[in-house]
């Protein structure tokens, strides 16, 4: 049994094999592995007694369920109306400059991935972005550079 197999067995045992535990299982695997590989989905399907297609169909419905490898720090910039009005594009450009990647890409050291997302619920403090679960609001170009500098220094 390989490491992933073992991990998935453990996660499924912890949440339970019933179908209504599928999302918590998928979420935990994404959190630990930083994405959901085809192999992981097949293993989850086996372990929970459902078809791999069903697991894939469910997983890909949710925008946070990444099925390609992501960086350690996943940046999601809000692109919905208020953030758009308050300069989301400049924020995105600042991030591209600070990370030397384009929207949708991951840095070569696999540390950062840059994405856009729909309304984060911080319209009164726009523009806003998430870095993993952490919220950053009232962004300015300077603020973006200092945030990224700080994350770059993290392990």
């Amino acid at each position: 049994m390989d490491a992933l197999q073992e991990k998935i067995k453990e996660v499924v045992a912890h949440h339970g094999r019933e179908r209504h535990n599928l999302l918590p299982v998928l979420q935990e695997v994404v959190e630990q592995e930083r994405y959901l590989s085809d192999y992981a989905m097949t293993l989850i399907a086996e372990e929970m007694g459902i078809s791999a297609a069903d697991v894939y169909g469910t997983a890909t419905f949710y925008s946070f369920m990444d099925t390609v490898p992501r960086g350690k720090y996943l940046i999601r910039v809000c692109k919905t109306i208020t953030c758009y009005m308050k300069g989301k594009n400049q924020i995105l450009m600042a991030l591209e400059e600070a990370l030397k990647i384009k929207l949708g890409e991951t840095t070569p050291d696999k540390k950062f991935t840059l994405m856009e997302t729909n309304c984060l619920g911080w319209c009164h403090k726009a523009p806003a972005m998430l870095i993993n679960d952490d919220v950053h609001t009232e962004l300015t170009v300077e603020k973006v550079h200092s945030i990224i500098k700080e994350y770059k220094e993290r392990p």
Binding site: I81, T82, N118, G121, C123
Partner: peptide, 11 residues
């Protein structure tokens, strides 16, 4: 699941 653009009161 407060997702409507412009809503943030539930949080």
């Amino acid at each position: 699941d407060e997702g409507e653009p412009g809503t943030f009161k539930d949080r």
